Computed example of a mutant assay.
Amino acid sequence: MTAPILILGTGLAGYNLAREIRKLDKSVPLVLVSRDDAPFYSKPMLSNALASGKSAATLVMKTAERMAEELDARILARRQVTAIDTSARQVSLQDGEVLPYRDLVLALGADPIRLPLDGDAAPEVLSVNDLDDFARFSARLDGARRVAILGGGLIGCEFANDMLARGIEPTVFDPAPWPLGRLLPEEAGAYFRAGLEAAGVVFRMGISAIGVDRQGATYRLRLSDGSVAEADLVLSAVGLRPRIGLAEAAAIQVGRGIVTDRHLASSAAGVSAIGDCAEVVGLSLPFVMPIMQQVRALAKTLTGTPTAVSYPAMPVLVKTPALPTVAAPPPAGLAGEWVLTHPEGGLEALFLTPDGSPAGFALLGAATSRKQVLAASLPAWL
């Protein structure tokens, strides 16, 4: 029997790679392994599911069984991978099963970064990174009126906006001076903050939580400025750390993520990496559009047509209906300056290099209508 293409992970990257492979090759054996029940759902919808009245169950588009039929694949749900043997081209599972592979794709995702909080309630701080997390989080929201969100980045701000639909008062804490600091320049960040504050979000910038204690049915947060705050629930959204442990144990090169070239190939023969766990020629981009570029390129490579991944300029859509926002930040360290204009009902920030060429933008409110035009003017990221 021919060894299969083995995909570890059934998230956005893993399942979409399998779909792209099936478009190109109807017969190559496919096996997917998942830590959870392996449902097909849209992870980006987790941070705006409350406003649309979605539960963890209704977010599921297709079960693992349905996906197995559609992909003509073997899908192993609730199975833990313990080791990768790149010499023997096989993967060991916790239950003792050993899976051979022709090609191995690591679509392992990333784990939420945990803040070093003290206090007796620190273990009760929640994070939402998958469907199981969302089920636990949404169950705890019943009766909650005040939620503390640790982190004013993309996910923290999206959850804050989403909670407004449930009549919940979200307070966002972040040591940075303005929200969405990795996506927006300062003035745009201030404009974004004002828009969400007008809708009911409370921001406490320049402040971080250092401890969380139980106080009856609520939580007491001890903050870096010496003050305290109370909340019915605490959600941590301070970022993600790529899952590199399995690769590192198998002597596959890792950096921030699993290091790959433009063909998504790792340092081990026959092993590729995609999605949130991958570091593609130095770039770790945990967003939908880069992942889709990766899976299309890798599917071609694995079916006989070596294809390097390319990244056009890929704006990030911030799901905050209180103030629609789209950002395409310039490459880190690039020389240039932000030029801001204020069209009616919005703000446009354009990053210009010394020769006047656009290299990034941030669009807020009515200015988001310019997304397509400006995106076409930006150079490719890769």
Rank of each mutant, 00 (worst) to 15 (best):
F192L: 06
F192G: 03
F192V: 10
R193V: 09
R193D: 05
R193W: 04
A194W: 04
A194K: 14
G195T: 04
G195Q: 08
G195P: 01
G195L: 00
E197L: 13
A198R: 04
A199W: 00
G200H: 07
G200E: 02
G200D: 06
V201H: 12
V201F: 10
V201W: 10
V202Y: 11
V202M: 12
F203A: 12
R204A: 14
M205W: 10
M205C: 11
M205E: 13
M205G: 06
G206F: 07
G206V: 10
I207Q: 11
I207F: 12
I207K: 08
S208H: 14
S208P: 03
S208W: 13
A209H: 11
A209M: 03
I210S: 03
G211P: 00
G211V: 01
G211T: 01
G211N: 02
G211S: 13
V212T: 08
D213F: 06
D213I: 01
R214Q: 12
R214H: 15
Q215C: 07
G216P: 01
G216R: 00
A217D: 15
A217Y: 00
T218E: 04
T218H: 09
Y219W: 06
R220M: 06
L221F: 06
R222E: 12
R222A: 15
R222D: 10
L223D: 09
L223W: 03
L223M: 04
L223T: 09
S224E: 12
S224L: 08
S224V: 07
S224D: 10
D225G: 05
G226M: 01
G226S: 02
G226E: 01
S227L: 10
V228K: 02
V228G: 08
V228Y: 01
A229F: 11
E230C: 00
E230G: 15
E230Q: 07
A231E: 11
A231N: 11
A231T: 09
D232L: 07
D232A: 01
D232V: 05
D232Y: 01
L233E: 09
L233C: 13
V234M: 11
V234L: 05
V234N: 12
L235M: 02
L235E: 00
L235Q: 02
L235Y: 02
L235W: 01
S236Q: 09
A237S: 14
V238T: 15
V238C: 09
G239K: 12
G239Q: 05
L240F: 12
L240D: 03
L240I: 04
R241I: 00
R241L: 09
P242I: 15
P242A: 12
R243I: 06
R243W: 03
I244N: 11
I244A: 07
G245T: 08
G245E: 13
L246I: 14
L246T: 12
